[in-house]
Design a protein around this nucleic acid. Structure first.
Lengths: 209, 209, 209, 209
DNA sequence: GTGTAACCGAGACGGTACGTCGAGTCTTTCC
DNA sequence: GGAAAGACTCGACGTACCGTCTCGGTTACAC
């Protein structure tokens, strides 16, 4: 039911030139060096042409550097099934961390910085940075539940939130360090089994208040 | 043995006028509405005077809205000792969430946004937003360890990171919801006891790989 | 074969609004009161728009108050031919003085003050304040030479320089007084006939050394 | 009758340090580079101390670079008496030009630029740049009058004004060129004998209108 | 074909904030 | 009260981007 495309169609060649110019600018001077003005200039493109496609800077940057979701692929693609929740979580953390490092921590921080100020952009950020992680962890948690591994009163969403939150806060605030792999394993173990010794009395898992 | 203060001393009265003007601007239009220009104007102060004290906007905002650390008070002040790690964690999350809500989620996001782009400001952010939380959780974890509640191979810093990360990512990305108290309890229980059912065999706490 | 004007053309309406605002500012507070900032504000125009046309304050002021050379008019327009060099010079001085008084001595001083510090502006000043006077006097001197009135060894340019110099130094330093007309006549006679009594011997006009 | 000097007397050593700093600044970056701020800094002197002595920048510069009038010396010092008005004028122009070149044309233009905008400073400028020249020419003219060389109806002040005006406009606007000596001779001859051929009829010196 | 509508480069435009600079004045402490 | 230091008000500077707009001109589809 799309209204028939009238007028001159957009040149998809320009999309590429613009994205390339954006990536160049990011590589050259980081997120700060990327102004819409500069990108248009470098791409040899009018500002209107740029704004028509990406009305906000973060949207452009996301399309330039974040891996697009390949259409028609199931969300659980590539997710390992190691047989235990702890193993799955460690694998997810490792994979996400690798992806983040490919993009670059500085760039991601700049991007988040530019989104957090406005609610609509924050929502986009959630969609592209946060929700994929929540989903990945959630899927693993649900699999664990089906397997009977998960305690009955633990909502998979909570697990997802804790794991994703730890990943993101490291990425954005703390800074990731080379031993990210080990961190993933520790985090997975913590989430799976908790930090407390099993108490001899039954109080170890009191009912939820 | 500070070098004797030469020249005219800075007027602490102006400090207050500036901070008040900053708070007004924040209250009126949120973080975005606060420009150094506007604050100087509203405070009836030259821009130089403002830049002399707070050379960057986030520094001004932090001093305007974040609770300063009262000098000479032990870092562990006010921390409850509920007798269990889970209880302590829930209390900490509740307290921090309350404090964050007093400042305001929108404002905090704007502030973080303005800092993340530059490393030096990110460091300040760590010092004022992140480390107090890490420290609070760390203290509770160490107390639990002394109590014998904590598993031997769990570093308190990891606990701190996970809990603080979950809090912050909710604050910054997910958005806190009214039932923050319940979230705190759930998070605390998750961290304390994990999400997996205790396995009948001894594999529940395998040694760290 | 000017390259075809690309992009949005400048609005000539804005030119007028800016010049009007400049004249208002000059009328209100003299040269000192005219800041680029104030003109842009008063004209309801962005500063960039102002700087794009007049990148320096003196250039704006000149276009605002100095009579532009009407295109296609011969440079000698309006120059009187009284039949004698002395008469012509007196007429020129009178006319220029009248024009200067129309602009205002204070304003002209401010303008010159703002130009003298930089060589490029001084050159513009020469083009718009000095050279028209040199040309006017030079034309009269050449006419006198053709008429056989001028001594053979007197370069017209020297006459021009002396007369224009006397006018300008009065304007800028000494200050003109109400009897400017009489000054013009005296100056003209001095230049034409010198100040010395004709010597009885032929030494009155010794050859140039 | 001087009121008794109270408090700490001013250190004349500081005067010298300040003047030296001013000269350094002028030498380094021309008139524009000399700000009161910079001079105070370079001289290691408080701004108040500087302003107490030279409340305006041009006053400081004048004292720094213009030859002070040595006290108790007759104003006509060093003025040659060549026996003819033309000779005296040429000598005066030559001497003044030499003095101006010692100070520097760029610096003098900057100085004049800084004075012209305000009437009080313009008056000081007259006193130090213009009147000495007027006086020198005036003295020569009066000597010529006593000698019987000058036409009866020519006021010496007019001669002074024309000669000084020609000198100053060259200095400030036209720019002096290396052949300043020749200019002086030509100017002197022009002023002495005029530019017109003596007419055969008696109309050469018509009575003043 | 000939509208008509959207695209396109270029750059003008109003607006807003930036961070710096200099002029003078004021306020300390020290001498 | 002189002096050094530096805080202070004021206001302009010139630049940079933002996001919108107006040009001349170019495609493409629809009639």
């Amino acid at each position: 039911m799309e209204v028939s495309a009238r007028g001159r169609p957009r040149s998809s060649d320009l999309d590429q030139r613009i994205l390339a110019a954006a990536r160049d600018a990011l590589a050259a001077g980081g997120y700060e060096a990327l102004s819409m003005e500069a990108v248009a200039r470098a791409a040899g493109v009018g500002k209107q042409t740029l704004y028509r496609r990406w009305p906000r800077r973060p949207l452009l940057v996301m399309d330039a550097v974040l891996p697009g979701v390949p259409p028609g692929v199931s969300p659980g693609r590539g997710q390992p099934d190691t047989g235990s929740l702890a193993g799955d979580l460690a694998a997810i953390v490792a994979e996400q961390t690798r992806a983040d490092q490919a993009v670059g921590q500085r760039l991601l921080r700049g991007l988040v910085a530019d989104c957090l100020g406005q609610e609509d952009l924050t929502e986009v950020l959630r969609a592209r940075l946060l929700r994929p992680r929540l989903r990945a962890v959630g899927v693993a948690a649900e699999r664990a539940a089906r397997r009977g591994e998960l305690a009955a009163d633990v909502p998979p969403a909570l697990v997802a939130e804790v794991v994703a939150g730890a990943m993101l806060s490291r990425l954005l605030l703390l800074g990731t360090r080379p031993d990210e792999l080990a961190f993933g394993r520790r985090l997975a173990r913590l989430v799976a089994h908790g930090v407390c010794l099993p108490a001899s009395n039954g109080a170890a898992r009191p009912p939820d208040g």
